[in-house]
Design a protein around this nucleic acid. Sequence first.
DNA 1: GTCGAACATCTTAGCCGCTAAGACAATTCC
DNA 2: GGAATTGTCTTAGCGGCTAAGATGTTCGAC
Lengths: 151, 151
Amino acid sequence: MFDMEPEALERFTWYMREISAMTIMFHTKIAEQMGVSATDEKCIDLIMRADGPVTAGRIAELSGLSTGAVTGVIDRLERAGFVRRVRDPHDRRKVLVEVTVGDVEKFGQLFEVARQSLIEVLSHFDEGELQVIERYLQVQIETFRKRVIDT
Amino acid sequence: MFDMEPEALERFTWYMREISAMTIMFHTKIAEQMGVSATDEKCIDLIMRADGPVTAGRIAELSGLSTGAVTGVIDRLERAGFVRRVRDPHDRRKVLVEVTVGDVEKFGQLFEVARQSLIEVLSHFDEGELQVIERYLQVQIETFRKRVIDT
DNA sequence: GTCGAACATCTTAGCCGCTAAGACAATTCC
DNA sequence: GGAATTGTCTTAGCGGCTAAGATGTTCGAC
């Protein structure tokens, strides 16, 4: 079905593993810089990546935490000024969690460094190569979501 | 210095963020499947990615945990049969931690799924495209290690 | 060789976040 | 309107983490 030298596959496996570990470290550093726990940072990332406000319960589902734990997460993030609780006017049981607008700077430094690093990486490639890379990233997201995450 | 449409950069940023979140989820699932905590899985990943045996203290450095916490990590991983403590014959203060050989299967399923997924992803590309992708991964690792991790 | 300083790991006390179970409040269904 | 359901919060109990100190080992000066 797909013939690739075993050594090549092994190299790619190593790249994935290395990037994977760097990703974990990156999130650890972001959390440190924001002055919150890794769990809290994971949740705020969930909230930011969602489109539109998210309920507390949805955060529990997405993060795998209990609802009780999510209450604590939101308490801490709210106290630190990263998010805000808003009662859903259509269903007043629900608590919508919104990222507070002006405080995107608090994520600041390291996100900016990451953005600059991405630009630096991409600057090594011409138009046609970037198209290949973009397709690669799209296929990777699609494949891993289907086969690894949604199971 | 490097001109790229802002929308393209935004798309790539989104890809990175998405992959980043999937990576976190992946490690969470691996840990679950292994029946250990995320911290423990992070440590065993460190040990496996290192070449040669690693000391307890080195694990503390690399993971950012206190030495006391690492003692607990190794206790649990040893009890679960993933690693083994070996006294360094040259310096008997040190404790070398080795991954137990026959138990690689315990990581099993999900690693295998990930490996198969990687093969599936790569099968979408021809020889020349794979070279571009490989270069991209190398540059990414190098750049992010330099600018994000080692700071 | 001996002694003290430095080093590597382990132990312990105290703290904090997580889970599970149930309380409370709002909504939906009959 | 009343019962069942839903969404969040509260609480008790547990387990992992940090910081500090204990224990065992090595290194260096003499």
